[in-house]
Design a protein around this nucleic acid. Structure first.
Lengths: 117, 117
DNA sequence: TGATCATGCTTCGAAAATCGAAGCACAAAG
DNA sequence: CTTTGTGCTTCGATTTTCGAAGCATGATCA
């Protein structure tokens, strides 16, 4: 498993510990944003998350769960699965503009289809 | 090199082609967000980008440049290096909330320092 | 001319991350 | 006892990333 990521200490790709660099490191790992995104509506269990993410590897899902938990973004739910923490939920608001942007990007790609294939 | 990513067609981890999934795929690759972030203030050349990203691998930088170019987010500058396209610049606005969130996360991690490695 | 320097790559073997099928321990239900 | 479902864990195979080295080109200097 890759080492844990927290703001304020060196991360992959930056020795400054600048918060946004830590975010880039943590969120720039395969499935990380996707997992958080799937938790936006409530707790999701291990196997269900795997299914939602098109059958992602269980070993990677375990790594992501642990990393995101160590980072304080998710926690084991009261009853079942994992859920977003307070700071994790606040990330939702930060990712929403990304969704809006993605739709814009899609529209732009429609208009400018060179290299489709 | 991984295959190119565009909204509206299947990507790693999703067959729906939903725009945000394509964004997760493209931006969830190592250095992708960082490279875009480094371009926020203007064009950056190959070797300078490598230096800014703490000496990232040249082969990966080449892949990221090509992928982001194929996705329409960056383009070769008039004079030098690569620069953000219109849609690429609009991504800046979508990433700014992420930066703000990262600062919040950092503050939260200060307050809740358990597991500080 | 030709030597030096910087840039934008390209190559390729090694290391790390990810995949994916299989299996394990446990609990609840039948 | 068997079955079903869950949350993992293991481990060999594949993919991605790393990183040092090299190459081609153009500008500058001698």
């Amino acid at each position: 498993m890759p080492r844990s990521v927290k703001p304020g200490r060196p991360v992959r790709g930056s020795r400054t510990g600048r918060p946004v660099m830590a975010a880039f490191d943590l969120l720039g790992r395969r499935w990380a944003m996707r997992v958080l995104w799937e938790l936006r509506t409530g707790p999701v269990g291990f196997r269900e998350m795997q299914a939602r993410c098109d059958g992602m590897s269980s070993s990677v899902l375990r790594d992501r769960f642990r990393e995101l938990e160590a980072a304080g973004l998710i926690a084991r739910g009261e009853q079942d699965g994992y859920e977003l923490t307070g700071i994790g939920r606040s990330l939702r608001g930060a990712v929403e503009p990304l969704e809006a942007w993605a739709r814009l990007w899609a529209a732009e790609a429609e208009r400018r289809p060179k290299g489709r294939g």
